[in-house]
Design a protein around this nucleic acid. Structure first.
Lengths: 319, 319
DNA sequence: TTAATAGTGACATGATTTGTCACTATTATA
DNA sequence: TATAATAGTGACAAATCATGTCACTATTAA
């Protein structure tokens, strides 16, 4: 390959990687003159790379969104395979990426010689993924996926048991199973993980007002384990004032034995499911200073978060 | 784009299309000298196009299998989409094309800038197609698909109701549904269309000895319609000798009324399902000259085919 | 033997790419 | 307001690359 084509391809990869750069910088990196880089960038621009430049100090070039990759040569078999894999997905209704995939497939098709096109047309009718008849339109898949990837909170209207509720959720991911799309998420309304059916989501938009929680380490691959984790039990100990003992005896006597001392104070020592932490956190916060949770640390952490959140809210309201 | 790169790409498409060509031919087509084309072909070869040449009259160039397409530039979004669509299919066990897809995805990944790779790595765990747990290894998918596309007969060992039978089938196509692969085919053992589960196929190889039937117009999209077609009824009329009447009265009295004339000969006039044609064809062939089928034409056609086949077989055995 | 084919090397010519230089224009900031 | 950092242009010479021509060699089918 000629010196120039080679350089253009490398240049393309470099600008895609840097996103922001100056002509001088590239000239040094590629050991050519500024003039040459300028000419090359003009060429790339002509090839469709979305370049934008600003003069002045701190100016320079930028690649806008919609970058394009350097041209890639696929073998016939690779192209056919990709074509098929993607084509076979067409029955999965409302796939995200739908338009991009179809644009890409058109490119492949365009560069294929006639006989390969024929082969593909033949195979189209002989290879398929049948998805179940139970199939509902799921909008917002892209939005949910985007929110999952970038850790954002989404405000949705959700139809459950035929009533419409409004919730704020932070998606973990989306997946398709027997014809339906699901979105496991953290639900801020229930303060816990919940599984949503995407076709029951009647509206969705990003909600910047709620602060997202850190779900970077939770994804489709490990959320089951984490869920099971939550059914694990943890050692639980709470110290109670006299008032606390009375409240707990009336509210929690069906769950725990409340131990009482001679002076009327007391304690509870038992195990709780991790999944019940949100409930206990709210409850013991409600008891205020009449309860002092000593373990498990997960419960203490949860309470601290709630308290901080509450505090923040009051600050904003009363200042 | 320079004159040369342009020509190289067009040359690539041209050789892929022609498969076989001479240098002189291309030189004329592209209006350049033989020498230039020779140089260009060397370049293409260097780029990975699998060229092969032979000298002498009737010699020339050929492109071997594993052709490569001219390089295609995808946008970032297209690449990511394709990547995902294909990636999400990984749970569909024993997909045909598996190796090719993974090779292609590696190419995409290679040309992606780092931040897009990160994005993909993030999304990998947040987007999926879950396939049902019921999932069995299906080998031979590629072979069956190949047979379907090229109208070939396959000899399989098939496990049905826990017994192993040996069959010759001509696949119509393959499809995946709730975790299993199916292969609707024409079965030469049953002389009818049957649906096979690919995971129950214990061995499969192309069988050149059986002459394939013409299934070019039957594919996944219309085979149901054709099957329903077969449940349609057709007017049926058979003329019977005295011997024929007796045989039919003992064999078919539960299905039809056998009309008898004074001289002992008779006839049956009724309707039959098209799907029963193979059965009746065999039966009336067994009656030899004691039966004369007058309609439906589908039955007559089927009998003619069987007779021709039988005849052919005897010819080969006794000559 | 002949004609058709691929392939090579050398060289002149023409085309393209590159570098240099001298400019203009814009803008942030000291 | 001056200065420095940036993009961008035009002209031209020098360097590199692409092409055609020609004279070859080598192989093979008919």
């Amino acid at each position: 390959m000629s010196n120039r084509s080679q350089r253009l391809i490398e240049l393309m990869m470099t600008v895609n990687r840097k996103r922001k750069f100056t002509v001088k910088e590239l000239a040094e990196e590629f050991n050519v003159s500024r003039r040459t880089i300028l000419r090359d960038l003009q060429e790339l621009s002509g090839l469709g790379v979305p370049l934008y430049s600003e003069v002045g100090p701190h100016g320079g070039y930028q690649v806008l969104k919609e970058r394009i990759l350097p041209p890639i040569a696929f073998t016939e078999e690779e192209a056919v395979s990709i074509f098929f894999a993607s084509h076979a997905l067409r029955h999965f209704s409302s796939l995200p990426f739908e338009t991009e995939i179809s644009a890409a497939l058109k490119k492949f098709y365009f560069y294929m010689p006639g006989d390969v096109r024929d082969r593909i047309d033949q195979m189209k009718n002989r290879f398929d993924f049948i998805s179940p008849t139970r199939q509902a339109k799921s909008s917002y898949l892209s939005l949910l996926l985007e929110a999952a990837v970038h850790q954002k909170v989404v405000h949705i209207d959700y139809e459950s048991k035929s009533e419409l509720t409004s919730r704020k959720i932070q998606p973990i991911g989306i997946y398709a199973s027997v014809g339906l799309w699901y979105c496991p998420s953290y639900c801020f309304t229930r303060d816990d993980f919940r599984l949503f059916r995407c076709d029951k989501i009647h509206s969705a938009k990003l909600d910047e007002s709620v602060k997202p929680i850190d779900l970077t380490h939770i994804h489709l691959g490990n959320r089951q384990a984490i869920k099971e984790e939550k059914h694990k039990k943890a050692d639980f100990f709470v110290e109670l004032s006299r008032e606390g003992v009375q409240r707990c005896e009336s509210d929690l006597s069906r769950r725990f034995i409340v131990n009482v001392r001679e002076d009327g104070t007391g304690w509870i020592e038992d195990q709780i499911k991790l999944s019940n932490i949100p409930f206990f956190a709210k409850y013991f916060i409600g008891l205020g200073e009449d309860a002092w949770v000593e373990r498990p640390p997960e419960l203490i952490e949860n309470m601290k978060q709630r308290l901080a959140k509450l505090l923040e809210k009051y600050k904003n309201n009363f200042v």
